[in-house]
């Protein structure tokens, strides 16, 4: 069973990371053809459809390196869908996604993903340390055991999120905020350069929220790029230096000060464009039956 040596070179990965993150920002490119290798995540004309019904239209942006990016939009705007499509978890109808200039498949070791907390069964019989160690499984490889060194790495990650005391706790005994911190630690332990987080602030208490934000800021200081799906409009200005406003399409994206304006918010939250909905419907109907 000991076949493929997956993820052979974590060392080179990190060196590549530092090289790429130190490069200057590139906010937007003029034409679709030259993709800057420096952007941690470039999404090009991506359309995603569920059962042929487009839920995301022509999403196109380059995430600036070394920034904390908030993705904001109403329910059903396709925020989680965007992350999942970028991670190849759901198929794209068109478009492509580049991570540091290469397809995601080749760059998995550079990306840390924090799924929504509700996406798993927290009654599962594992403890917090086990969950964090899962972030290392890929590096450990097929059929190998989790060594003491890996456990130490996981423990360090728990320490970072302030959960070291709870390492041996079964995960169902943790509060919502603590569960979220465990998920965050699982992403941290991967030592990625780009983090994609799906609603890390959903249903967490105030102190956890502050703790998570501190961690995110530390990540940014270390030159990492963090893309966060976010709900709470009040905190956007405080947390993020770059925002993407999304409602089935990108309404606006750019530095928070420029883009996070009442006018843009109104466009984002002021209901969908009816024609998009109708075109999506027509596509779904004619494609299905």
């Amino acid at each position: 069973m000991n076949t493929e040596p997956l993820d052979q070179k974590p060392a080179t990965a990190s060196s590549q990371t530092s090289a790429s993150t130190s490069a200057p920002h590139s906010v937007r490119v003029a034409t679709g053809d030259e993709h800057p290798v420096t952007s941690p995540l470039s999404v090009h004309d991506m359309t995603v459809a569920y059962h042929r019904k487009p839920v995301l239209w022509d999403v196109d942006f380059d995430a600036p390196a070394g920034s904390l990016i908030g993705m904001i939009g109403p329910n059903g705007a396709g925020k989680s869908t965007l992350l999942k499509a970028a991670l190849d978890l759901i198929p794209k109808a068109s478009g492509r996604v580049m991570v540091y200039g290469k397809p995601y498949r080749q760059q998995r070791h550079l990306v840390g993903y924090v799924p929504q907390r509700e996406s798993v069964d927290w009654d599962f019989p594992v403890n917090a340390l086990d969950v964090v160690a899962m972030g290392l499984y890929r590096r450990i490889g097929w059929c190998r055991l989790v060594s003491r060194r890996h456990k130490q790495d996981a423990m360090d990650a728990l320490e970072q999120v302030g959960m070291a005391d709870f390492a041996k706790r079964q995960i169902s005994q943790l509060s919502g905020g603590q569960q979220q911190r465990v998920f965050l630690a699982r992403a941290l332990v991967q030592d990625a350069s780009l983090y994609l987080m799906d609603e890390p602030f959903a249903g967490v208490d105030a102190s956890t929220e502050i703790a998570i934000v501190n961690i995110l800021q530390k990540l940014r200081e270390a030159g990492k790029t963090v893309l966060v799906v976010h709900h709470d409009l009040h905190t956007v200005r405080d947390y993020f230096d770059y925002v993407i406003l999304l409602n089935m399409r990108i309404v606006a994206h750019g530095p928070t000060d420029e883009v996070f304006t009442p006018e843009n918010l109104k466009k984002t939250y002021g209901g969908r464009l009816t024609l998009l909905d109708r075109a999506a419907h027509a596509m779904a109907r004619q494609g299905e039956t």
Binding site: T31, G32, W57, D58, I250, V251, A282, M283
Partner: peptide
Amino acid sequence: HFDLNVDHLHDSAERTEHYIT
């Protein structure tokens, strides 16, 4: 309505044109 460059418009229209009443 979209925050897109002019040269990115064609693909979207190419896909959608068949469904517009």
